[in-house]
Design a protein around this nucleic acid. Sequence first.
DNA 1: CATAACATGTAACTGGTTACATGATTGG
DNA 2: CCAATCATGTAACCAGTTACATGTTATG
Lengths: 184, 184
Amino acid sequence: MSLRIALLGTLASKGPASGYELAKTFDDVINQVWQAKHSQIYPELAKMVESGAVTVEETGGGRGRKVYTITEAGRTEIDAWVAHPEPHRAVRNETALRAFLLPLLPPDRAAATMRGLAERHAALLDDLLKDRAAIEARGASGEPPFGGYALDLGIRTFTVLRDWARETAEDLERRAAENGGKGR
Amino acid sequence: MSLRIALLGTLASKGPASGYELAKTFDDVINQVWQAKHSQIYPELAKMVESGAVTVEETGGGRGRKVYTITEAGRTEIDAWVAHPEPHRAVRNETALRAFLLPLLPPDRAAATMRGLAERHAALLDDLLKDRAAIEARGASGEPPFGGYALDLGIRTFTVLRDWARETAEDLERRAAENGGKGR
DNA sequence: CATAACATGTAACTGGTTACATGATTGG
DNA sequence: CCAATCATGTAACCAGTTACATGTTATG
């Protein structure tokens, strides 16, 4: 379902596009939020044509390029989906699972793992902060920035992840020091 | 892969259990972090027996109860997985996708959506805070709490989500007021 | 004896990934 | 003419969900 919405949203915000172009977009912009391979996108586009959410037009270009345009019905679908978040989606979070199982490692190894995680999250956070700085530098301020709310959410999320990993590492190091590295 | 680790982790921390009991555990404790239905658990246990990560023992009890015990090989697997987080897992985040598409809604509807989201996250956060309070009340303090790091991460995450939704709603409301509810 | 809780499994389907397959156009 | 890029599709497979199917033991 969400892939469908992500595709419709891209068509709504960027205008008509081919499957190839949509796949490219999923490699950069939306990548922080959702991704899909072309092998999933092409069949999905076919389904959307069938249900009337988009229309196709065949044009020239390598091996029969097809351009898809969102319809009013498609826009209505996005609207309904964005405005009506379902109550409680299944959580399947590898970082949280790692956090859960952390006490199964000896504290010093667990601490080292968290140090590494903190560093990686710090690096990802830096990337996002640079993205935002670049957008702010060239964009006229005051605009309702497309993707801006998602970027903000990403920055906040990585900040929390970095700090949590850092402080968990400190806690584990304190415990390791207290009882001389006993674990499990 | 992660389901396998989640099962091994549960067996490591809680001791031998049947598939039925593991399915129950996935309904409560680990539920915040990972979940699985019995229809996925039973085949996975069979695979783990085959690869030597666990051993089975058939006992009495409704329709041939089978009890699974983790082996040293299984413990090694957990250890390796927890300590070696892979660089960059695929992100597929419905909340972030919604955030991304928010500017496609008229600002007043977008703001209302974010208000609702903030409320739901606030409620989930309250639940987790109560969980932690209950654990702290009855548990001897100073213990390395099993699942405690994951709980901490959950609390921080929902706090960020609540605040982000709240502040995004405020931003959208300000914009809606400024230009009289024009959108899209 | 009926019902709830215990207990294990299979089948059909959806969503997503990896790999396979093909062909057109553009630039060096 | 060769390589890169544009461009679209299919097949096999893995993970996860829903629904189907079956049988046991304890309790009122």
